[in-house]
């Protein structure tokens, strides 16, 4: 008989160790149960990601237009007003590297895709890309089946609560306990009730708004710029290779935001777009940064539109898309 104590076995554990293991299990069982309840409850909260995922699953084979970008685009484009079948993958803080992965990994699910729209708003090239620890990576994997982790994924990468626990705890509290989680998503995941913000708070009073301070959300970052620009060109090369037409968009921003822009940042961005214009044939532009059709009542804050503003911007985008198509 082999001596069990010489093998890799739990029989090697002393009584003290076994008792410790039992206590650990006893201690962590409630934590694990609460975690899974928490996770389940979070997935039951209606989100735009779930709706976008539904659009991808049910209409994927008819979609002709895919829209990418950050919250500026998310707040500016309501696919409801686009005549051609479309989907908007845009979401808060989403940068080009996430956009590109989503595009590459959903392309086979979008066989009729003809046009893609990317955001290149004023400071886009100076903002570092999403990191491999970006909390939305789990959301992309869970809802779009897209891996933006830059590594192999595991079962735990589909958990939402481990990514931004505090945020989801607050969301749960708001949805289930305080019941003040307000949303009015349409089938495309666009929130039609998203008016709340600084401008509404100031009653859309332009003089008050202009007097108020705004925080710059962009800083001069040449290192990010040096990295982001070649990456963006890769994205355009990919689209060219796949015969996709590209729209480069920059949504409207309010007067005081425009006044605060760094001239250097603006100049660098525009010079890159000039190069793009010369180098590629399949590119179209929609720059509404200083578009005077947008009034104070179209904004939530300095650089985000409200649903009324989104309607105007999307209609302009629709005209361009129809023309391109």
């Amino acid at each position: 008989m082999p001596d069990p104590k010489k093998n890799l076995s739990i029989s090697n554990f002393s009584r003290q160790q076994k008792s410790f293991a039992a206590r650990c299990i006893l201690f962590f069982i409630p934590v694990i149960v609460v975690f899974f309840c928490f996770e389940y409850a979070v997935t039951k909260i209606p989100t735009n990601y779930a709706l976008i995922s539904d659009v991808l699953k049910t209409n994927g084979d008819t979609i002709k237009i895919a829209i990418f970008g950050s919250s500026q685009i998310q707040n500016s484009v309501n696919p409801e007003y686009i005549d051609l079948p479309s989907i908007s993958f845009s979401s808060t803080s989403q940068h080009h590297n996430s956009d590109f992965e989503i595009l590459k990994q959903t392309l086979d699910r979008l066989p009729k895709l003809e046009i893609v729209a990317f955001e290149v708003s004023y400071g886009h090239f100076e903002i570092p890309h999403n990191s491999k620890y970006f909390w939305k990576n789990n959301l992309y994997l869970k809802y779009y089946d897209v891996n933006t982790f830059q590594r192999t994924t595991y079962f735990k990468d589909r958990f939402l609560t481990t990514t931004r626990t505090g945020f989801f705890a607050k969301l749960l509290e708001s949805y289930y306990i305080k019941k003040n989680y307000k949303y009015d998503y349409n089938i495309y995941g666009f929130d039609r009730g998203n008016y709340a913000g600084k401008f509404k708070k100031l009653n859309y009073n332009t003089s008050e708004i202009l007097k108020s301070t705004i925080k710059k959300d962009v800083r001069i970052d040449r290192i990010a710029f040096k990295y982001n620009v070649p990456y963006f060109f890769n994205m355009l090369d990919f689209c060219k290779e796949k015969n996709l037409k590209v729209v480069i968009m920059s949504p409207p921003t309010f007067l005081n935001y425009n006044d605060k822009r760094y001239p250097d940042v603006l100049h660098r961005r525009d010079s890159i777009l000039e190069i793009v214009k010369e180098k590629y044939q399949n590119i179209y532009f929609l720059n509404a940064e200083e578009d005077t059709d947008f009034t104070v009542k179209h904004f939530r804050n300095e650089n985000h539109l409200n649903p009324d503003g989104a309607k105007v911007f999307t209609e302009k985008l629709n005209v361009l898309l129809t023309k391109i198509n």
Binding site: F38, T161, T163, R164, T165, G166
Partner: peptide
């Protein structure tokens, strides 16, 4: 002691800031 541990685990779950490296 267990109550203290649970409270701190709760605080971590509830009030953790955005994950920073």
């Amino acid at each position: 002691r267990w109550l203290i541990y649970y409270i701190f685990i709760f605080l971590i779950f509830r009030y953790a800031g955005p994950k920073e490296e």
